[in-house]
Amino acid sequence: MRLIRSELMKIRTTNVWWIFALSILAFNVLMLLIWTFGYTGDRLRSAKMPMEQMLPPASEVPPEEYERMRQEILASRDIDKILIDGATQIYTSGQFFILLFIMLLGAILMTNEFFHQTATTTFLTTPQRTKVILAKFAAIGFFSVIIWAVTTAVSVGGGAAYLASQGYGAQLGEWQVQRPILMNLLAFVLWGILGVGLGVLLRSQIAAVVVGAVAYVIGSQAVQIAAFLVYEYLIKKDWVIQAMVGWPSVASQVMISPDAFMGAGIVAAPKWWVGLLVLIGYGLFFGVIGTLITRKRDIT
């Protein structure tokens, strides 16, 4: 317990944490604006437009084509679906960037020990290195929970106010809306742990931050391109696309909202719990490998 306290003090006693906290809040608010006024607002507006304005004159298209377009528009005007889709995004605003920041914070918490040569002091005070790593996991987890609580409060407060201003309820009673909010909490904690693990594997601060950010931001695009190429030219099987869930950032995406799975248009998206298991698997893998390496390593 006191080790966790010590690790939390390490986070709190430098400027890094509030720079991260401010960035996280900034993205949280920015994405909240986009998901409310932009995404949900647009869909609500078009749902309220008179049908005639959205269809070409009936004389210009064949009747069956006209009917298809009409059905499509009708489907998109399902207010309940718009509200639930919107609430799901609104209440997890900024998730993509927040996860990135949490992972980097976890990585820095570990690499700082080597960058600033504080590993010596840390391991002199606590020679049981496994305990130190576990305390770091706990500290970043604790920090992630606070970040989740604050950003979710902002998103839910702002989002519910927006929906109310449009004359709708907050949709918080829906499991489809609750689940992403809860999964977000899990994702925050797991990405923090992944970050610490990454910091152990790549002791260099710069390397850990660059590799982490690149793998996170560009990695999922690269995985997507690779999967689609294989699917298109080599193995035309659904599992090729579904296997993208093996990449951590795709896994957390699937865990929170399977609908957003990048291959969803082509094949069935993997179930949300598959994403959860993959992410837990990475967390365990990085955690165990990182701990084993730290136990063996000479601190010089």
Binding site: R2, R5, S6, T14, N15, V16, T120, T121, T126
Partner: peptide
């Protein structure tokens, strides 16, 4: 063991307090 073993952006007092907490 070495003179430069504290986080550059942390105060000396906090450097010691972190060790106190851990021990």
């Amino acid at each position: 063991l070495e003179a430069s073993s504290a986080h550059k952006g942390r105060s000396g007092r906090n450097h010691l307090r972190i060790q106190c907490a851990a021990a």
